[in-house]
Design a protein around this nucleic acid. Structure first.
Lengths: 314, 314
DNA sequence: ATAATAGTGTCTTTCAGACAGTATAGT
DNA sequence: ACTATACTGTCTGAAAGACACTATTAT
């Protein structure tokens, strides 16, 4: 089998020796990096003792210590090693740069536009990670970073208009503002203006994300953040990914709040309970007291439900 | 701004000159390829003149002319050029190797396991393309290929069992058979046995696809095909992607048949009409005659519907 | 008592599922 | 007349949507 010869009379072994010697000449190689988008949810206490704390979405960024984009904020990530799989690279870089560990990660998208990095052609495989609200791990900046911090995420639609392109094509152009606020240190605020062009290409809706302007956000990382936000929102609707953002136990109201945060719409409590309670979660014997109102039951997620649902075949 | 100096006293310009001179030493680079999974639907005429032709899913493969995996069937694709974006690479390779053009493509997943290619570390960005049933373009094998042909796709669940791993983890193991049949030339049949391990990892369902055995399918391409099949099935449920597989005009029955093919379940015609007809499609004045039964109205897809639905905000 | 959240009951509307029944062609 | 598909009408039941109502707590 391995002794089949190609048109130059080489068998596999000979071919590989030849290939490895001359590979630099054969094809120019880009660099490959992994970048990880890490989301979490944090609570903001209200002045009113009775009110529930408000939930907010956060993303983790690190401050770059070197060119290019020196002093700007970027997603944690870096070059892959040749002896590790892509997800292993993502986890390693995460550990190195932020000390985060034991996360749920999933591949998001691969960004490889030819001019996305001034150094050389760099293809970036992006990952999305979610960590629970009350995560207690130590966060510190690693070697390549001056700083690592959580930024509050606000992604707002500013404008939307339908128009015709020169090719008589119907497009909807949306303008978003992505605002990232670092409340911890010196209240740094990063803003990116994003244009999303929605067009029909070969009968399919295509959303092209474009950075109009940004300040202190490295590379095309604000684009990756937008992409991740959209994916997160979508996955909340058809998977149980949301529980990766929840603490071990939680009340139904807390869960509903996170749903509302991610879906950006109000849900009806009664219907929400009927839908979630009997399947996805299990009652614990804990309750949340100390608030100025009726204490709530705490629940845990029942991950086995997913195995049954998707596979058990009813 | 660009004159900020790093810890070695370099500004951006100096840094880049230094980087470009020494980049080979800095980080080892993998190769990057794009591979495109091309699906289409074909009809098989029935012996009975009254019966509708049966629809089947097909994938396009090319026969490799060189090592590695010489004489085996692979997805069309190849190394990216450094001066083109990833999707441009995918389209170029497609044109070169199969003469297909003007397709809807979308990025699928990036496969980058360390040992997936014997030559060197190769990261492959996979794309999925759909072409309509009655596509008339000329198909021919390009430079790197001996042959390019359509293979009928059969992906069947063979076995499924729940078990506990050594870590007391609940997993469901599914065994699938992926059968690819080339009916045109010498009725070649490629078979891959695929194991999918469904486990709960950090509370989330993870499906790990593993090739148990395969014959005459190159690299890990059967894995990519499985991944694409799953994605296709999912996207059919929540997008209008299916119309990329349909001819310009079609009957409701034809559309329903393709839905049933992809979702692998029977749908109720009455309900199907009520759901699809008023929104997604528009009646034409054509009908399908010549069959031994009542002729059907032909419809066209209304792609603008998507723009309205997803964005018009009701 | 009050203000807030926790949780239940019930009505309406929408839509999926199921199936019977009518319509219309070619042979 | 037969057969296969095309298309419509209508029932059922399960969810989604909406809202009113009761329960419970710290201050």
């Amino acid at each position: 089998m391995n002794n089949i010869r190609n048109e130059f009379g080489q068998n596999l072994e000979e071919f590989l020796i030849d290939y490895k010697q001359n590979q630099l000449m054969r094809y120019p190689k880009p660099s490959v990096t992994v970048d990880t988008l890490i989301f979490t949810v944090k609570e903001k206490l209200s002045a009113n003792y009775r009110k529930l704390p408000k939930k907010q979405l956060y993303v983790l960024l690190i401050k770059r210590k070197d060119h290019p984009c020196i002093n700007e904020w970027a997603l944690p990530g870096g070059f892959i090693n040749l002896d590790e799989n892509l997800d292993e690279s993502a986890l390693r870089e995460l550990k190195e740069e932020t000390n985060l560990d034991e996360l749920y990660i999933e591949q998001l998208y691969t960004f490889g536009d030819k001019d996305r990095d001034p150094r050389t052609r760099i293809v970036s495989v992006s990952y999305m990670a979610l960590i629970p609200q009350n995560y207690q791990g130590e966060l510190f900046a690693g070697d390549d970073a001056m700083d690592a911090d959580w930024f509050k995420v606000d992604f707002k639609l500013k404008d939307q208009s339908q128009s015709l392109t020169e090719d008589n094509e119907n497009v909807i152009i949306q303008t978003y503002e992505l605002k990232l606020t670092n409340e911890c240190s010196n209240a740094e605020e990063l803003v990116a203006n994003i244009k999303i062009v929605n067009r029909i290409k070969h009968q399919n809706l295509v959303r092209e994300i474009e950075i109009i302007s940004q300040n202190a956000i490295a590379f095309d990382h604000s684009k990756i953040i937008c992409y991740g936000l959209e994916r997160l929102k979508n996955k909340v609707e058809y998977t149980d990914i949301i529980f990766s953002l929840m603490p071990k136990t939680f009340t139904l109201s807390e869960l509903q709040q996170v749903y509302e945060l991610l879906l950006d719409e109000k849900l009806y409590a009664a219907h929400f309970r009927r839908k979630i309670e009997p399947k996805l979660i299990r009652l614990t014997d804990q309750t949340t007291g100390g608030k100025g109102h009726r204490p709530a039951q705490r629940y845990v997620y029942n991950p086995l439900w997913q195995l049954q649902k998707n596979l058990g075949g009813e």
